[in-house]
Amino acid sequence: MQPFAYRKIHDVAAAIAQGAGEPNTVFLAGGTDLVQLLQDGIARPAGIVDISDLPFSSIATTIDGMRIGALAKLADVADHPQVRAHYPALATALGETASPMVRNMATTGGNLLQRTRCLYFRDGVSSCNKREPGSGCGALRGEDARAALFGASEACVATHASDLAVALLALDAEVLVAGPAGERSIPVERLHTLPGDTPWIDSDLEPGELISAIFVPRGAAGWAQAYAKLRHRASFEWPLVSAAVSLAVVDGMIEDARVALGGVAHKPWRAEDVETLLIGRELDPVLAREAGEAATEGARPLAGNAAKIPLLARVVSRALADAGGLP
């Protein structure tokens, strides 16, 4: 870890000013990702602005939905009675995130902005265009078992590892952002970017922009939801692949649907074709299977990650089955 200047800031405007004004300055929330990156020399900031005391940790129900502070701890969100009651996909995704200790430290904003788990990025020394632009992509011809199936580029085949982001995408959530240019809101779908030629960029945020809260619209509250996560261990592991589904079911008929996929792209991946396929039909095991297959449409495997394709199909079917109460 290289030396850095540390400041804890209690005022939103000052935090934004610091983040935008001083070069190579990063925000520190729960620290669970940033400290890992510091330990491995992947993040080498000159300055760290500790935002953990900013007033962003409340979780509140509003008339049009729920507002979850960006500094709310994952454990508190997962435990929140309203979240459990109205957004079970979210509660499940968070309950299956990391470990109890990490959930007590980690924040929702930090979770969305955690960096990829690509082994080549994380080891701090291998070729990696995301960590060291121009050094090449080690994963592309290397150990690519967890690499992306969708939206990858020659420059980077990494996936986004967040469980939360996948659930939020299926709930049509937005992130509320405060920055030098004022406030704005970004749909979760547009928060993260694809790697393209600039794999070192992960999100749409400008320097100094802070996530203040996540907004989950009320609409999704009445929908049938589920989050299904596949991993090697029974607990305490990032997803290999995952799926969040949210279905508006009226008289057995799917009237509207959101399907989001995790572990398969540089961002949580919206499966619109699957949504279209589901709408207007009745959920049964056959449809769940069909939808799973459809979710893999357009997947472009590398040498070592083709097995993720059938697993993705099945995890989508499983999420649908869970949402629909199928066996």
């Binding site: 729960g30 620290g31 400290v35 890992q36 500790d50 470990s99 007590n104």
Partner: peptide
């Protein structure tokens, strides 16, 4: 944060103390 050997309570809640900066 991967092993939990450093678990302590901070303000009564479990954390992994290896991922907490002391200054914070």
């Amino acid at each position: 944060g991967s092993c939990g050997a450093c678990t302590v309570l901070v303000d009564g809640r479990r954390v992994v103390s290896c991922l907490a900066l002391a200054v914070a």
